[in-house]
């Protein structure tokens, strides 16, 4: 569905991603794990169109077309069915929960379909329904993360990219967030997940890539990497 080939990302003089290849098959959960600054976020930010200094190709086979999407604007990429849920949640604190969700559906016009997805989001996150008219900024960290995921779902994506969804959450909430990711995937959405919480990510991932300073050093099915000695030592605390 998504095929990243020879992707380079630069920030001024810094070479953050050094020609990596990643494949995200339709309907699967793929995760990028690695330490801070390994280039995980840069990779999905490049896919989402936010970064300009990039090289390589990102072929996308979805939305009834097959083309290189590298270099398109973020709004164009969202319209094609790839949405990113950014690091740090980035919900809009001065807008209500409902307005945040409707912003997610900005590219869509089919009221019925939007309503259907809204019901789905409320189903996944009953607390969002209770707080529909509350300002986003009044939600707790965990609720904000759920709102951010819900907002991403509202764009009716084929591929949903999540940047560190567990960041700053209590262990119980982390589990909840990952359960939700599983449910979203079960509904047919392809997931590309960036995580520092390697254990949680590997557990649900069909396939995983380990990044170190801009290179992929290891890849394989999530379950296998969980057992891998090198991964255990470097990311799972021995």
């Amino acid at each position: 569905m998504l095929k990243v080939e020879g992707l380079h990302v630069y920030y001024g003089g810094i070479h953050a991603v050094k020609g990596i290849n990643i494949e995200v098959p339709r309907g699967k959960i793929v995760t990028l794990i690695g330490a801070n600054g390994a280039g995980k976020s840069s990779t999905i930010r490049a896919v989402s169109g936010l970064l300009k200094q990039t090289k390589g190709t990102i072929s996308y086979n979805g939305n009834g077309e097959n083309r290189n999407i590298l270099g398109l604007s973020p709004e164009n990429i969202v319209r094609r069915g790839i949405v990113m849920c950014p690091e740090g949640r980035r919900i809009l604190p001065h807008l209500t929960v409902f307005e945040n969700l409707m912003l997610g559906a900005y590219t869509r016009n089919d009221k019925k379909a939007i309503k259907k997805d809204l019901d789905w989001v409320y189903d996944l996150f009953p607390r969002m329904k209770e707080r529909t008219w509350q300002k986003g900024g009044t939600l707790s960290g965990g609720e904000q993360q759920m709102l951010a995921v819900g907002r991403a779902i509202m764009s009716a994506p084929e591929v949903i990219m999540l940047d560190e969804p567990s960041l700053g959450l209590a262990p119980l909430l982390v589990k909840e967030v990952f359960d939700i990711i599983g449910q979203i995937n079960a509904e047919g959405k392809t997931v590309l997940l960036v995580e520092q919480n390697a254990y949680a990510a590997l557990k649900i991932a069909d396939y995983a890539y380990v990044l170190e300073v801009g290179n992929i050093v290891l890849e394989g099915p999530g379950k296998e990497l969980l057992e891998d000695q090198r991964v255990k030592e470097a990311y799972l605390g021995g």
Partner: peptide, 9 residues
């Protein structure tokens, strides 16, 4: 930035 990520031009 987030607004762009939601598909707003």
């Amino acid at each position: 930035e987030t607004t762009r990520l939601m598909g707003v031009s």
